[in-house]
Amino acid sequence: MSDYNPAELTVIMGSRALQDGQIIFAGAGLPLLSAIHAQKMHAPSLAILFEVGGVAPRITSLPRSTNEARSVRRSVATPATIDMMLYLQRGFVDVGFLGGAQIDRHGNINSSCIGTLEKPKVRLPGSGGANDIASSANRVFIISYHEKRRFVEKVDFVTSPGFLEGGQAREKTGLMGGGVEKVITNLGIMEFDKNSRSMTLTAVHPGITEEEVREKTGFELPVAEDLKTTTPPSEEELRSLRALDPEKRYLKAGDF
C-alpha cells in the first residue's frame, strides 16, 4: 500500500468527489489542490472559479491567495469581484468547496471567531466569500482535518450557513443554494440525513475504524447502515498531487 499523509489523502478524496464538466468555486489551499488534481486525473474540463479571480484558469504555479496573478493564469475571463459572485447567486456554480475552523452537526461553518464575536478567544480572519458560497452554490463540499475541536455540536458562530438547526431551517431563512452535501476529512466522508439534515458517516478511509471517527468527532455521529470503505490513493494520484505542491506548503505531514 502507498504511504501518504492525512493532507494528501483528504485532497485526493476531494478530487474524486469532483466531476468533469462541473463549474466549481474553490478556496485557496486544500480545496484548490483538489480541484487542480481532479483536472489532471479525471476532470479535464472542470472549470475553477475563484471568488476574486479568473474564470477557468490553467494554473501552473500554486497561488497563495485566490485573487493573485497566479490564479488568473490563462483564464478565459477576469470579471470584477461582484460579477463573479453574481454568477454564484444566479445559480451557475455546481460546487462550492470550503474549509473552516469549526464545523457542526448540521454543516454550519465558523471562520469568524472562537468564543463569541463580542468577546472572542480568537478572532479569525472572517467570511471572505465563504458565506456567499455556502448561501448560493448548488451544493457545498467541506474539506477539513478531522479532530474533536473542529467537529463540534454547535459552532461558536455561523459564518457560513449549512442546514442551521437542521430539518427545514435552512429553507425557512430564504436561502436558495442546496447546502452542504459532503464533508471530506482525513478519516472519512460524511453526508447529511435527508430529514434531520444531520451529519452521518457514510464512508471511512482504508485502515480507519468507525470508532476512531466517532471518537474524533465532538458530537454523536450516526453511521450509515451501508458504511463504505474508500479506495486508497493510487501511486499515480499521489505522484500527480505531489507535483502540484513541491514545497509542501499544504501537503505537510500531520494536521492541516
Binding site: N131, S135, T159, A169
Partner: peptide
Amino acid sequence: YRAGAMGIPFIPTRVMLGSDL
C-alpha cells in the same frame, strides 16, 4: 459599493440570510 455607485440606498441579495453575521 455597487449600490453606492448606482446612487440607490440598498441592493437586495440572497446571501447573509440565516448566518450569525
